[in-house]
Simulated scan of single mutants.
Amino acid sequence: MTCQPQVEPFFHELTGTWSYVVHDGRDAVVIDPVLDYDQPSGRIRTESARAVLDFIAANKLQIHHVLETHAHADHLSSAAFLRARLDAPVAIGEGIRSVQDHFSAVFGIDRKDPALADAFERLLADGEVLSAGALSIEVMATPGHTADSLSYRIGDNVFVGDTLFAPDVGTARCDFPGGSIDQLYASINRLHALPGDTVLWLCHDYPPEGRGRRASVTVAESRRDNRLLSAGTSLEEFRKVRSERDAGLAAPKLLYPSLQVNIRGGRLPPAGADGLRYLCTPLQLEPHTDGL
């Protein structure tokens, strides 16, 4: 792969999320953009997305695609907001259909609703190559965290979504619907098989105390130092450590708000009869709650 693009990271402090503008000359794509959402107040803002727009305008970039690595469960996507202002199609992995199937039932959304059927302009398969002017983008299916997880290889850079974290944090969880420890193991080993100087760009960082945040890690460092899955980790060892960690993890704080928006390609639910928009929270009732 010959293109060697420039990568501009944007960090969303509240959710620990990295978003990226990747560009070569004036040709560019946006990866995993974030919408600002304050859960206690229900307030939606667009400062983070506007910072991305300001960078695009200042550098006179043409955005060819807005790319999602998967339907995120920990932040709301601003893909629809950017699409409306940049006239750029939104793309995600073809596995999004199974994610939509599951969560449309959770939220009581008609699976045939055009808000789901037409949520994304492009559904991408493993091995596809997207052309974005001077940029050539190889699609790598990296399931395991979710069924729709993709990585995007652009030159010597790979944008890995939640599949991998910094070495001292580890790997994605696998306990979401459609998740698979065995698939994640295979996906990470696929990434670790890339040349050692390949740069893996992360979607999140949760740095331990005393370390500054990181947006990237090389393949060589990750396969040597990743605390949960390094070059010498067997599948059986990974199954044990990953399943034990997942059993103790709480649900992401923004799980339900995020997925209601993100399976719609970043669009908010439609307004109700009162003109307001609502995000719902399915309740999980413990036994013996009669009378509530």
Rank of each mutant, 00 (worst) to 15 (best):
S104A: 15
S98H: 10
G108I: 05
I181L: 08
G155D: 09
W201E: 00
H145F: 11
P143R: 06
G178T: 13
F81R: 01
A119N: 11
Q183I: 02
R190S: 14
D110P: 04
P195R: 10
H75I: 13
V139Y: 06
T146N: 10
G95A: 10
V99Q: 00
K112E: 14
V199T: 15
P207T: 07
W201I: 00
K112Q: 15
H192R: 09
A172H: 03
S180R: 09
G179R: 13
A147I: 12
A125M: 10
S98Q: 12
P114W: 07
R111S: 13
V129P: 00
T163I: 07
D175I: 09
K112L: 12
R173I: 13
D197G: 06
A166E: 08
S180H: 11
N157I: 00
S187P: 14
D197L: 10
F165H: 14
V106M: 08
G161E: 03
I137C: 01
F107I: 03
F176D: 12
G93M: 04
N189M: 07
V99P: 00
E138V: 12
Q100N: 06
R122H: 13
W201N: 07
D182P: 09
R173N: 14
V199L: 03
L86Y: 05
A91H: 01
V90I: 14
L135T: 03
L200W: 01
L150C: 14
I92V: 15
R173Y: 09
R97A: 11
Q183H: 14
F165E: 02
Y185I: 08
G155I: 09
S77P: 11
V106R: 10
R153D: 06
W201T: 02
A117I: 15
F81S: 00
A80M: 04
